[in-house]
């Protein structure tokens, strides 16, 4: 059974039709990369998964729960869905350790000692074990984004959403973040990644989705995409970025 399912989803920002008849099914453990020009609706698509955006039409079903239904307790869904943002969005007034342990302690009621032990493990895993007492402002962009990934992982989510995680990074820091993401991709967690990093898509994606003007234009394996894309719109886009 799919862990994320979009059925006939439409969304408007006022009169702007940003998602058009989106049908999508993502299986447990899949790594899906979403590509497309800016304004194509890729970020909006993943933001609908944890209801940072609401849809006006259709169904968004995440791990069996209807996200589009206002009666659904969205906090339960969100505890299963970690999110990593383009601008990191670490809490600037909290240390790295507090950034990571705040949600497990306050939302999951995990004992502090346990949350901190886990935070240390996660910081080791993303390669910045020694930075737990730093404030976000004292870290480089790449380090901040790795803390953000650790923060998302601290809730032990089933799904991780990445919204252009390397777009705000200096070139030399992109690799350190992508390396962490590649490691994660092999752990069996479901990942949906909006990115322009085609190397990442080629290397770890199970499927690539191409969106344009709010529509899913083409879905396929990385090989399919980079060797024999079918749609003209896809070919045009890929020719520009590859």
């Amino acid at each position: 059974m799919a862990i994320i399912e979009f059925v006939g989803v439409n969304k408007w920002f006022d009169k702007l039709h940003v998602l058009r008849d989106v049908d999508l099914s993502i299986e447990r453990g899949e790594v899906v990369v979403v590509i497309g020009p800016s304004g194509s609706g890729k970020s909006t698509l993943i933001r609908c998964v944890n209801r940072l955006e609401t849809v006006q039409d259709g169904q968004v079903i995440v791990d069996g729960q209807h996200v589009e239904d206002p009666r659904t307790d969205i906090r339960r869904v969100r505890q299963e869905v970690g999110m990593v943002f383009q601008q990191f969005n670490l809490y600037p007034h909290k240390t790295v350790m507090q950034n990571i342990t705040m949600a497990p302690i306050r939302v999951k009621k995990m004992p502090r000692a346990e949350a901190e032990k886990r935070a240390h493990e996660l910081l080791e895993r993303v390669g910045i074990g020694e930075k737990h007492d730093a404030y976000p402002g004292q870290l480089s962009g790449g380090q901040q984004q790795r803390v953000a990934i650790a923060r998302a992982l601290a809730m032990s989510p089933k799904i991780l959403l990445f919204d252009e995680p390397t777009s705000a990074l200096d070139p030399e820091m992109i690799k350190e973040v992508l390396d962490v993401m590649k490691d994660l991709a092999h752990t069996g967690i479901t990942m949906v990644v909006v990115t322009h990093e085609m190397g990442f898509a080629r290397e770890v994606a199970n499927r690539v989705i191409f969106m344009d003007a709010g529509r899913i234009i083409e879905v396929g394996s990385p090989e399919h995409f980079f060797q024999a894309p079918e749609q003209d719109r896809t070919k045009l886009f890929l020719s520009k970025i590859l």
Binding site: R78, Q79, L90, A103, V107
Partner: peptide, 18 residues
């Protein structure tokens, strides 16, 4: 306060009051 910080907190499952 940057909207993104609020969204980050919302995405972690905090209540509105939290």
């Amino acid at each position: 306060v940057n909207r993104g910080l609020i969204e980050a907190a919302q995405s972690q499952g905090f209540t509105g009051v939290q």
